[in-house]
Amino acid sequence: MSATADTAPAPTPSALPPLAEPDTAWSPLDRLGVALAWIAGLLLCLIAAAIVVYMLIRGLQFVSLKLLTTHPVPATDQSQSGGILDPILGTLILTAIGTAIAVPIGVGIAVWLSEYGRPGALARAVESGVEIVAGTPTIVLAIFGFLVFTQPAFGFLSFTAQGNAVFGRSFLVAGVVMSLVAIPLVVGTTRESLQAIPDHVREASYALGKDRASTIRRVLLPGSRSGIATGATLGMGRIIGDTAIVVILLGATLQLQGYGSTPILKTLRGTGSTLTSYVYNNSPVGEGNAPEKAYAAAFVLLAIVVLLNLIVNRAVRRSKSSWK
């Protein structure tokens, strides 16, 4: 905007020092600043575009329907090592478990913090606790999970070898720890959208004779649905993208390896891999070292993440216009 100095005479011109020259001039430093801002912005777009385009090229090069639908096989030759069906299934199973645990717990905590929150000291402690989990490196969560779930009491979640040694690696174990990654996000967005609901909505519900519990269930939770959905989707993104927990707590076996005989429980108590651990193991640092397979899996992984991102974008846009 073009700003010009006020030329109208001041009330007592003689008493005031003369106005300083307006600072409209663009000094070289300012120009440099603008140039740097442009460079930074364009660089960011460029990096994002480079990542997406590069992965797209590599993906189209190596992904095929056959790859997506065949089981992986351990082999040193890339052409013999099968597809990525099991990692895809692993990602889906693990995300489902993690989200299924995280959403009810996260929503519960958010509702308690936002609508009850008594005693205050406890509420603040819970708040800080959630913040600590949000900041804890997932590798630390992973080995904490390993410490807990190798205890004999949790043997039912994975399998128990001879001599009572609990293996401590399974979809259930990894899913429980993964939920810790998602809970802070669900708590955050749910709380935000609960607080965005104006108090007169609550009061209207009370005026109709509803108690607080049913107000929460019938009014507040439906009203914050989009916030919960956003949190759940963000949480899913985190779970899908995490590698450390999978590497340590899922056993990183190439194929889904069930344990026991009950059909579904067998898989859940068994080990497997996800797209992230598959990429990791097939990169040059891993045991597989099959870059083509790693690229293909990374492409599928990125596609899922981009898709989730679009969903979040849409949800955020919708939630902004819900309360007036």
Binding site: L44, D242, T243, V279, P284, A294, L301, L302, N309
Partner: peptide, 22 residues
């Protein structure tokens, strides 16, 4: 820009690692 920022924040670290390594 905003979707781009959100996308870059959401790319899994293993993909960054893979691109870095290869």
């Amino acid at each position: 820009m905003e979707p781009v920022v959100r996308l870059l924040a959401a790319v899994p670290s293993v993909i960054y690692g893979l691109i870095g390594l290869l």
